[in-house]
Amino acid sequence: GKELVLALYDYQEKSPREVTMKKGDILTLLNSTNKDWWKVEVNDRQGFVPAAYVKKL
């Protein structure tokens, strides 16, 4: 099944490779191999968020 993460904080994208999320959002985790930036999918968009801003559910 898909792995989900919870947004712990708001995050505003700073580049086209990133995505914006709001605290409390549930996101689909696509890739967590990089310890600093995790790739997630939110609202049919894929991009990176800081790993410290999310936690695995």
Rank of each mutant, 00 (worst) to 15 (best):
W38Y: 08
V5E: 00
L8Y: 04
E41Y: 06
V54L: 15
N34P: 04
E13N: 07
E18Q: 10
G47Q: 02
K22F: 12
G24K: 02
R45C: 06
G1H: 14
E3G: 10
L57V: 11
L6S: 05
W38F: 07
A7M: 02
K56R: 14
V19T: 06
D10I: 02
Y9S: 08
F48D: 04
D10M: 04
W38G: 00
R17I: 12
K2P: 14
K2G: 10
V42I: 15
F48W: 15
A51P: 06
V49N: 01
A52K: 15
L57K: 04
V40P: 00
L57Q: 05
D44W: 08
G47D: 01
K22Q: 10
N43F: 13
E18C: 07
L29H: 01
R17C: 14
K23T: 06
L57A: 04
E41C: 13
L29T: 01
Y53W: 08
E13S: 15
D44Q: 12
N43R: 14
M21G: 00
G24T: 02
V19M: 12
K39P: 01
Y9N: 08
R45D: 04
T20M: 04
R45V: 08
S15F: 06
Q12V: 14
W37C: 06
K2M: 12
I26Q: 05
I26E: 04
V40M: 02
E18A: 06
K23Q: 09
W37E: 04
Q12T: 13
Y9V: 11
W37N: 02
R17K: 12
K55F: 10
N34F: 08
I26C: 06
L27I: 07
K23W: 04
V49L: 03
E13M: 12
K39H: 10
D44H: 12
E3Y: 10
W38E: 01
L29M: 04
L4P: 04
T20R: 06
Q12L: 13
K56Y: 10
K35W: 07
I26P: 01
F48E: 04
Y9T: 07
F48C: 12
E3K: 09
S32C: 13
R17T: 11
S32H: 09
V40Q: 00
K39S: 08
P16S: 12
D44G: 15
P50N: 02
V40R: 00
S15I: 05
F48R: 03
N34Q: 10
V19S: 02
P16I: 10
G24A: 03
E18D: 05
P16C: 10
I26G: 01
Q46D: 06
R17H: 14
F48H: 05
T20W: 04
Q12S: 12
V19W: 04
W38L: 05
R17F: 14
E18K: 04
E41V: 10
V49T: 01
D10N: 08
E3I: 14
D10R: 03
P50E: 02
S15E: 08
K2T: 11
L27R: 01
E18R: 04
T28E: 13
L6D: 01
L27D: 00
